[in-house]
Design a protein around this nucleic acid. Structure first.
Lengths: 149, 149
DNA sequence: AGCTCATATCTTAATATTGAGATAATCTTA
DNA sequence: TAAGATTATCTCAATATTAAGATATGAGCT
């Protein structure tokens, strides 16, 4: 393999990666809209549901988002009663976002449906192919993150 | 493998797919901003550069975007002198977007740099792994698109 | 304590994107 | 040919997101 082929493969990889992600995401977003949330709101809510309370800052790290947008999205979720802010006792600069009972009840209902939508979206790969894809994508994601200084 | 493991793998696949795409895209976007364009503008410009003039409608199909946004983005590119609208002689509802000389000269310069940025972003996989990933992602993307009725 | 630097959140204005629907041209088919 | 359906673009208001920087806290040092 020469340098030129390698070039082409890199771009090609980026294209098919983007496509696959767009279309699987299209399934996910369509599902989320049924719940009256936008994708960002859902992503934050699910993060809190699965990982517990988070400082706003860390939400931005886990879901790629600027700080201004985090504030905005958490405001929205707070208005809907799905999330509350809790001041951090050790560091008064820090606010935690915490899911409310209403938020938990909501995701208890919505999450299994959401999971089904994702299963449908990725049904084009069989179990072994999924396993392979996971391995390759994990490696790719980690290295791309690390080389993004 | 039972149904439950399969479930978990689907979600897991979606997560690593999203992550990989986010981080590779982060490289691409950072590169694009150096040129004074936003990612959508760049995507439209590159489409015209590589595939020639396109009806606005078809731009929306190739880059997932709503029609209102296509109008807006093509306006922006037109203001910057990188693109012009050309009416279609056969169907007067249709406008083509066409890249200008200035736009072509711009991408002659920018595209090789952009390609390098992508190469760096995906350098975590070797040639064989890229080949495998391309195969799996192509299959996944096509099936996700097809099942998104 | 006071100073400086780094960090976390928030504010605000500018920009980007969506969603609904208006407008106008083409196609279909009776 | 005329009516209705479809398609392509555009308009515009509402919403989402970014970018820059303001504010406030904490940590380390003297």
């Amino acid at each position: 393999m020469n340098a030129e082929n390698n070039r082409d493969e890199s771009l090609h990889l980026f294209i098919v990666l983007s496509r696959a992600c767009e279309w699987v995401t299209a399934h996910a977003h369509r599902d989320i809209r049924r719940y009256g949330l936008n994708p960002t709101e859902y992503a934050v809510l699910e993060l809190l549901y699965h990982k517990g309370s988070q400082p706003l800052q860390q939400i931005g790290g886990k879901i790629l988002m600027t700080s201004g947008n985090i504030t905005y999205v958490v405001d929205k979720l707070e208005q809907k009663g799905l999330v509350v802010r809790k001041p951090c006792p050790e560091d008064r600069r820090v606010s935690f976002a915490e899911i409310t009972e209403k938020g938990t009840a909501f995701l208890d209902e919505a999450f299994p449906q959401h999971r089904k939508a994702i299963e449908t979206a990725v049904a084009g790969l069989n179990a072994e192919e999924k396993r392979q894809a996971i391995g390759l994508l994990k490696k790719l994601g980690v290295s791309a993150q690390e080389s993004f200084k």
